[in-house]
């Protein structure tokens, strides 16, 4: 019986440390990237994968109680709300920054971007067919 307890401790501890490692990577990314919209990418790491790993480890350590369900609820809640808050933060940044064009490309109309993408697709298709013809 106690062997199983030790195995559970090891597995739970490994998952917890995995979550901690993801939090460390998140913090490294937040300090390394240069702009908010890039930093948000790193910050969303901890909200989903980091807390999932940590809570899974804690669930293993606590055993099967009613409290396990509460931990799962926390993870589920964060999965649902993290994209919403990220979206709002991105909208705040894109709406209020007047020098947004220095950091990323801005398309005034969606049609321009669609036309550009279509052009890229066609050229890649052409090059593919060209390659096939060369092989033949």
């Amino acid at each position: 019986m106690s062997v199983w307890e030790w195995i559970r401790l090891l597995l739970g501890g490994a998952l917890l440390l995995c979550g901690l490692l993801i939090f460390l990577i998140e913090m490294y990314g937040v300090f390394r990237l240069k702009y908010v919209l890039n930093r948000m990418h790193a910050a969303a790491l901890g909200d989903t994968l980091g807390i999932t790993c940590s809570m899974a480890g804690l669930m293993l350590l606590s055993g099967f109680h009613f409290s396990t369900l509460k931990m799962a609820m926390v993870v589920l809640f964060l999965w649902l709300t993290s994209p919403v808050s990220s979206h709002l933060l991105a909208r705040l940044e894109a709406g209020t920054n007047e020098e947004l064009g220095e950091h990323c490309e801005i398309y005034e109309e969606l049609k321009v971007l669609e036309a550009e993408l279509q052009e890229q697709r066609e050229t890649s298709m052409q090059s593919e067919t060209f390659d096939e013809e060369e092989k033949e």
């Binding site: 917890l16 979550g19 939090f23 998140e26 913090m27 937040v30 908010v36 930093r39 948000m40 910050a43 901890g46 909200d47 980091g50 807390i51 940590s54 809570m55 804690l58 931990m71 926390v74 964060l78 808050s85 933060l89 991105a90 705040l92 940044e93 209020t96 920054n97």
Partner: peptide, 23 residues
């Protein structure tokens, strides 16, 4: 430098505090 930076940091602090409370 910008407000969005601060809000992202506050969001991260919130996630970490949640793990701390659970531990």
């Amino acid at each position: 430098p910008r407000v969005a930076d601060r809000l992202v940091a506050v969001n991260m602090i919130g996630t970490m505090v949640m793990v701390m409370i659970a531990i």
